[in-house]
Design a protein around this nucleic acid. Sequence first.
RNA 1: UGGGGUAUCGCCAAGCGGUAAGGCUACGGUUUCUGACACCGUCAUUCGUAGGUUCAAAUCCUACUACCCCAGCCA
Length: 558
Amino acid sequence: MNLEEIKAENFIEEAIIEDLKAGKNKEVITRCPPEPSGHWHIGHVKAWTIDFETAIKFGGYTNLRMDDTNPTKEDGDFADSYVDDLKWLGYTPKNVIYSSEAYFEKMYEIACDFIKRGLAYVCELSGDEVSKTRGTLTEPGKNSPYRNREASESLKMFEAMRAGKYPDGSITLRAKIDMAHPNMNMRDPVMYRVMRVHHYKVGDKWCIYPMYDFAHPIEDALEGITYSLCDISFEDHRPLYNWFVENAFPGKKYLPRQMEFSKLAIENVLLGKRYLKRIVNSGKVMGWDDPRFFTIAGMRRRGITAAAVKNFVKSLGVTKVDSLIPKQQFDYFVREDLNKVATRAMVVLDPLKVKITNLVADEEIFVEDNPSLESSTKHKSVFSNELYIEKEDFSLNPPPKYNRLVLGGMVRLKNAYIIKCNNVVYKNNGDIDYLECEYLPETRSGNDNSGIKVKGTIHFVAKNNAVKITIRNFKNLTKEEYLEPDKALNDGIELEDLLEENSLIETNALAEKFILNAKVLDKFQFVRKGYYSLDPDSTKDNLIFNSIVSLKDGFKTK
RNA sequence: UGGGGUAUCGCCAAGCGGUAAGGCUACGGUUUCUGACACCGUCAUUCGUAGGUUCAAAUCCUACUACCCCAGCCA
């Protein structure tokens, strides 16, 4: 690898190149360190993309490491789901590691060593007392009365902690740093706490568990991670991170370096785990994979592709700026990818019947599966004397520049013929019953030498080739006026007031019969309408399609 | 009023002392059997503010302002 040939695309890569050139590190090994306590969402995709792509760029690798140091919140099912999620994203971790299993013993030894060297002490202050003596943002904290306990005594007590001699929450191991430090994280942070909770991975082997601030840097160092990339909320933990790593491995040549980037926020997108959990428990959504959620499971179920999500995330760059991305910026990448992969189908969402008065026999027609592909295949469809078009594709009072069907006007039925509307037949109640049209036999698609030019092309489904399907349309999960739903909730808005009412709307549509071959998660473009994906709830008799995104609509009446 | 961060077009974002890339959006136009896609074009005399250094500053210096994060035995 020639460092001179690598172009840094962000400040992290810049720093890495500098380190590598200066010999501070010799390779780029990153880690993807989820706590198995919830489902991943699009924010995680940004973080993991940075972890994996950075390592790949420098010829290194990434470990998937379960940061499972707090059994009260964790569950093995989550850990399992991450392996699948990563696969869906197309990333392969070099190793899959469970911190609890891999490092708890070694961490304990290091903690003992800290005690012996006077860098840590056993503290008998209660949680409340610890909190009270921590000081405030502007006032220094007070030293714990146990701070100067003999190392030998601390060590004995720490061993007793591990042996289960102390009740939960009664005692901690604390780092001895500086209770007056302006950085709150440095005020003798807790390294170990006592809790008798069954751990999904290591069972009841331990009753003391390390805290993140101690565990994470030690794990990184033990694992040989060279770059520990995390979000900006850990920025002021970095001095602590370094303190632990430097004291645990004095003189070690290559130490991991933590660097932080800003996390992803998208307008109107709710990501907070605890909020999503409440919504799931309330039964107002289908589950963690609800298509309205921006969880990986939700996006996948909705029909959004991994490529789209990754392209979006990559387009954002890596910085430390507090940003809020408009949803439409995301939609662009969803459409961009779907345009390349979605099979085209003619589907009428809101049917208006049309009778072709001069057609004697049904005709077979062909619909291109995907014109954006060089070698596009076609599927068979039907043109018949009774068919459906979209209600909105016919108008009695057309607005300016309306180039669809009007009474006495002509329009092309896509993949079939140009038709002319001669008559509108009404029902007793005054509604339109159906349209009477004639088709122009010399205008068949692909064989049209008529020279007749028509302004518009609309899609249709022949009555005898139509199959009724269910469409799930989604509004934003939360009300549009809350640009930052997580923030609104944190500020005290009630979840009930934030949620959009009836954000799931089921409708029916008429699709070409060939759609019966669709498999779950297959992507379609319903021509001129939008992108749809077959939902797993579908049965043989009831195909359910999730609306992914609409097509852009350039029609402006002004 | 402690500490840590961030400020370049409506939203992202390059830029690293030599005279403001790119993407999204928007707006024009071309093309089109998807009003999609594609393609062309327009969109910052100006870089949070005010001073200063320099032949030359978004880039260096000084001061100020705004916003974000931190007081879990969570991660």
